[in-house]
């Protein structure tokens, strides 16, 4: 154990790993903010869909980079991802708002079209599928200072919207009909959630990759909701849990030859399973045992 701490201490002297750690901390705390609204709106897979579409954006950015002889080739990849993710998120939001009949199929088309489009366009740009791997599974080990600044700015934007407008975004997620009767701009606010989700996908892309990005948004929320009884506390707890699993997962990979993104997600899912198990043992059937009418005498005793 002491050896492990010593190894971690050594690793932390590396600026590269320091940057990776800071990026993981920022993204880990930011991603669950948007995830909280997505879970509330039952759009947990929106992040996954946006991730697929963002891959096409990465490839488009790459294509533009190769046309303009940019150095490096993927200089515009993040910009492309942001644009494609926002378009994808707004499309998904629009499709889900239209009703469930055709929404399911339309979402599937968007998901698979997004990932296949990415692979085809990267070939056109003279790249290979291997070039996409860093985006699909994350590349924390190559985070530059510039990347870190971009990550911090985008995360700041997400936090300002996600926390600053918490009551309004909660209102439209919890009961859109009531929100509409209050005169709230429901359509604008739901699109805002989609746009912020798209930004979160692109900012998380570096840490866990587009294929696992949704996990970083959703799993900390799923853990937190088992521990709290209020929306505000669920969001706060999810932010802390997200930051801890991201940093924890990354620290594990400092000493073990594991992929950081996947390790973070496996750690988060393991924590979820652990909390769910402990909760099931400690508080069995809590809701069922509660008397919904404590002030009314029971008319039947079993």
């Amino acid at each position: 154990m002491i050896d492990w701490f010593a190894q971690i201490g050594d690793a932390l002297t590396s600026p590269l790993l320091q940057r990776a750690l800071i990026a993981a901390l920022i993204v880990g705390a930011t991603a669950p903010v948007v995830g909280t609204y997505l879970v509330q709106r039952r759009l947990s897979l929106l992040g996954d869909g946006v991730g697929h579409v963002a891959l096409t954006g990465v490839a488009m950015g790459w294509l533009v980079g190769s046309w303009t002889h940019a150095e490096p080739n993927d200089a515009y990849a993040v910009v492309g991802a942001v644009v494609a993710a926002i378009i994808g998120a707004v499309l998904i939001e629009a499709v889900s708002a239209r009703g469930r009949t055709s929404g399911d199929v339309a979402l599937a088309l968007l998901f698979y079209g997004g990932i296949a489009g990415g692979v085809v366009i990267i070939s056109l740009a003279g790249g290979t599928n291997a070039n996409l791997m860093a985006y699909l599974f994350g590349s924390l080990s190559t985070v530059s200072t510039g990347d870190l600044v971009t990550t911090a700015i985008m995360s700041g934007l997400i936090l300002v919207v996600g926390i600053g407008l918490r009551t309004a975004l909660f209102a439209v997620s919890h009961d859109p009909e009531f929100a509409r009767s209050s005169g709230l701009p429901v359509r604008v606010l739901t699109i805002l959630i989609a746009i912020v989700a798209a930004l979160t996908v692109t900012v998380s892309m570096r840490v866990v990759g587009l294929l696992l990005v949704s996990a970083l948004m959703i799993v900390p929320v799923a853990i937190a909701q088992q521990l709290t009884s209020s929306f505000r506390r669920t969001m706060s707890a999810a932010m802390v849990i997200g930051a801890l699993v991201c940093v924890g997962g990354l620290l594990i990979t400092f000493t073990e030859p594991l992929a950081p993104g996947a390790t973070i997600v496996v750690l988060a899912v393991t924590v979820y399973a652990g909390v769910a198990t402990v909760r099931a043992v400690v508080r069995p059937r809590r809701v069922r045992a509660a008397d919904p009418h404590p002030d009314v005498a029971d008319d039947v005793h079993l």
Partner: peptide
Amino acid sequence: PTGLPATAVEVVLTGLLQRRRLW
């Protein structure tokens, strides 16, 4: 809803929002 937990007071607070006052 079986989604995320929300307390009674959090739900009531949403009644205070207005079209031009989203906080």
